[in-house]
């Protein structure tokens, strides 16, 4: 069982997961704060202005970083949630295949969203 959890976990150790969780949280916070402030200071923004903002190379980099951060953060977070609640201890032997199913599903959805979002933000 340890092997399975390790295969689907993101990092190599508890520490790397923990650092990544915090680092990605910082990126997401920076993005959130920036966008909030930008939207509040530009109440009459139109589509053209929004497009211009997101076409700027610094904004593109921030967008990519944020999308990647969300993916990593979600991966680690959901893996933790699944290994808390979908366990043999709580649900019996059926928990292992069930958790693998959910984890692979989570990973697939995560990757699809990641590629799709990268395509959008980088392709502007």
């Amino acid at each position: 069982m340890g092997m399975i959890t390790n295969v689907t976990s993101f990092g190599r150790s508890g520490l790397s997961d923990w650092i990544l969780q915090r680092a990605t949280a910082v990126v997401m916070t920076v993005y959130t704060v920036f966008i909030t402030v930008y939207l509040l200071t530009n109440p009459d923004m139109d589509y053209g202005q929004w497009l211009a903002l997101n076409s700027h190379i610094s904004m593109k980099v921030l967008n990519v970083l944020t999308v990647v951060s969300i993916a990593i953060h979600a991966w680690i977070g959901l893996w933790a949630v699944l290994t808390d609640y979908v366990t043999v201890r709580l649900l019996g032997p059926k928990a292992t295949p069930l958790r693998i199913f959910f984890q692979l599903g989570m990973i697939t959805i995560n990757l699809v969203y990641l590629i799709w979002a990268l395509d959008i933000v980088w392709g502007i």
């Binding site: 390790n6 150790s13 508890g14 520490l15 997961d17 923990w18 933790a80």
Partner: peptide, 10 residues
């Protein structure tokens, strides 16, 4: 021995 995803980081 503590640096796995469970022992401390849960």
């Amino acid at each position: 021995k503590l640096d796995d995803p469970f022992s401390v980081f849960r």
